[in-house]
């Protein structure tokens, strides 16, 4: 009897709690259509597996934790020749070894993606060898034959889209800046020789998967900030380059050695 009476009291409470829970999750569901989604690009016979698999999710989590931007905490994968590649404007292409030559369908898919305004982030998981990055650049030359690869200027908006950054870093320090392949006036393809996903990846218990060299956790924080900035660049474009923000940014640059 007591248990039945208790249940009669608890049921409404459970309903209310459930409604609250569902409402809050509902609130996050509506509006996630435009949320940051670090999808992994698959080409050829590549599969998404290995120690860096948690990297994209961690990227979204850091973005959502530190900023007002919504992010999909369970990112997916997408093939380069899939029509769904055009569903969202951001995708990550990563690997550690030479990539297979892109098929015509993959080239066409990537061309449509980039020419419609999508952003491709190419992250070298093994910057010590550089084979992945070199092969990726080779294949992307077929996608955008008219584009050239140039270093990203140090005053590019990526370095101040959220955090003020002096340089790019990842799991390794690498060169000071990213390389970029532009189509039109936008930096559409960004090349990272820092293994950014490696810096972000976590073990199931939460510990970092890879050590960051040479500067350890300070460098990992800077890598995380670069990831946040990259996401903000994808979501806000050149917002932080607007004239209204320039004076404030210039003042901070001069006071921040």
């Amino acid at each position: 009897m007591t248990s039945i009476k208790s249940m009669r009291v608890l049921w409404p409470l459970l309903l209310i709690v459930g409604w609250v829970v569902l409402s809050s999750s509902t609130a996050r569901a509506f509006g996630e259509e435009g949320a940051f989604h670090p999808r992994i690009l698959l080409t050829g016979h590549a599969r998404w597996e290995g120690p860096r698999k948690s990297g994209p999710g961690r990227w979204s989590w850091e973005l959502a934790r530190r900023t007002s931007a919504p992010a999909k905490l369970v990112p997916g994968t997408i093939r380069a020749d899939a029509s769904a590649l055009l569903a969202e404007p951001f995708v990550i292409w990563t690997g550690e070894d030479n990539v297979e030559p892109l098929t015509p369908g993959e080239i066409t898919g990537l061309q449509k993606f980039l020419r419609t305004g999508g952003v491709l982030f190419v992250d070298d998981g093994a910057p010590e060898t550089g084979r992945f990055l070199q092969s990726a650049k080779r294949e992307l030359a077929h996608v955008l034959p008219e584009a050239v690869v140039l270093p990203l200027p140090e005053n590019h908006v990526i370095f101040h889209s959220f955090y003020l950054l002096e340089r790019a870093v990842g799991r390794v320090e690498g060169p000071k800046t990213l390389d970029v392949m532009s189509y039109g006036n936008s930096a559409n393809v960004l090349f990272s020789s820092y293994d950014l996903l490696g810096a972000l990846s976590r073990e199931p218990g939460g510990a970092a998967t890879f050590p960051v060299v040479p500067k350890g956790e300070w460098q990992r924080e800077r890598a995380t900030r670069l990831a946040v900035n990259l996401a903000m660049y994808v979501l806000c474009s050149t917002y932080k380059d607007d004239q209204v923000h320039a004076p404030a940014l210039m003042r901070r640059r001069t006071t921040n050695p």
Binding site: G31, E33, G34, A35, T67, S68, A69, P70, E88, P89, G117, M232, V234, L235, C236, S237, Y239
Partner: peptide
């Protein structure tokens, strides 16, 4: 908040 919808309108 920054979303793909905000991005598209801004661009």
């Amino acid at each position: 908040r920054p979303t793909y919808d905000v991005r598209a309108l801004r661009m």
